[in-house]
């Protein structure tokens, strides 16, 4: 094939575009979602939680959580003057059916919703012998069900007790921050269904996320900071007795 100079000049830009798209590889499955643009976390306002259990029920339905196991659950603390460091903690059926009315007038009560803390330096992912659990580039701790052997090392390693072995699938299971929802622009099932907005999904990499202002202006704590897990579930107004 013979080409004159003009034809070559016309073809060059076209060839450049073709080459560029070839080098870029296959486009991502979800073109509007980029892993590197997010760093997910959650904000929990303890003073707003009423212990209704809506989050537990919603999570259970959205994620088909087997009965008696929980990806999120709610604990009720009762701290009285005599037992400041040994609070009474109850969580009947994980708070799925709510809580019985509190009648003891002494001391203080509060509810603490719990879930996977999606630690940046997660102990559970470090112990997995087969690479079945990992932190995604957008900060979600996830389990690969096709790789998990069900050895339960991770269940023991989690300092927050957030993992369980799925009784039917016999693999480790846990909160994945409703990954199928947050990648579609929805919030998690628990946040969507919290009637008092006590739980809020937050994206630490999004400069417009209200969490940045909140963290600057409130007394926010993570659970077990002494474990240096890099927990990303932030609690506002957390009492010192919570463990």
């Amino acid at each position: 094939m013979k080409m004159n100079r003009r034809q070559v000049l016309i073809l060059l830009p076209a060839a450049a575009i073709a080459w560029e798209s070839l080098m870029a590889g296959t486009p991502e499955e979800a073109p509007n979602y980029k892993l590197s643009d997010h760093w997910w976390s959650m904000l929990i306002d303890v003073s707003k939680c009423i212990g209704c259990g809506n989050c537990v029920r919603a999570c259970s339905q959205e994620n088909k959580v087997p009965e008696g196991h929980f990806r999120t659950w709610v604990e009720r603390y009762h701290v009285d003057d005599e037992h400041m460091t040994e609070p009474q903690v109850i969580s009947p059926n994980g708070g799925f059916d709510g809580f019985p009315a509190a009648t003891d007038d002494s001391g203080k009560y509060f509810f603490v919703p719990k879930l996977c803390n999606h630690c940046a330096d997660s102990p559970c992912t470090q112990v997995c012998p087969v690479g079945a659990t990992f932190v995604t580039p957008d900060g979600v701790v996830m389990v690969d069900r096709t790789y998990c052997l069900g050895c339960a090392y991770c269940v023991q390693a989690c300092p927050y007790g957030c993992r369980y072995i799925h009784p039917e699938l016999e693999v480790a299971d846990k909160c994945d921050l409703c990954y199928h929802r947050i990648t579609k622009g929805l919030t998690t099932a628990c946040c969507e269904n919290c009637p008092t907005a006590a739980r809020q999904l937050a994206d630490l990499k999004n400069p417009k996320d209200p969490i940045h202002a909140f963290l600057r202006t409130h007394n926010v704590q993570v659970l077990k900071p002494q474990m240096a897990t890099g927990a990303k579930v932030f609690y506002n107004d957390l009492d010192g007795s919570v463990h």
Binding site: Q61, G131, A132, F134, R145, Y147, H180, E192
Partner: peptide, 27 residues
């Protein structure tokens, strides 16, 4: 896809994202 992002199967992320939703969201 093993090793695409780290010592795990990169496609596991896509598998998880492909689960069906039950709550449509208020929007």
């Amino acid at each position: 896809s093993f090793g695409q992002y780290g010592h795990y199967r990169g496609d596991a992320i896509k598998d998880d994202a492909a689960r069906p939703t039950f709550y449509a969201g208020h929007d």
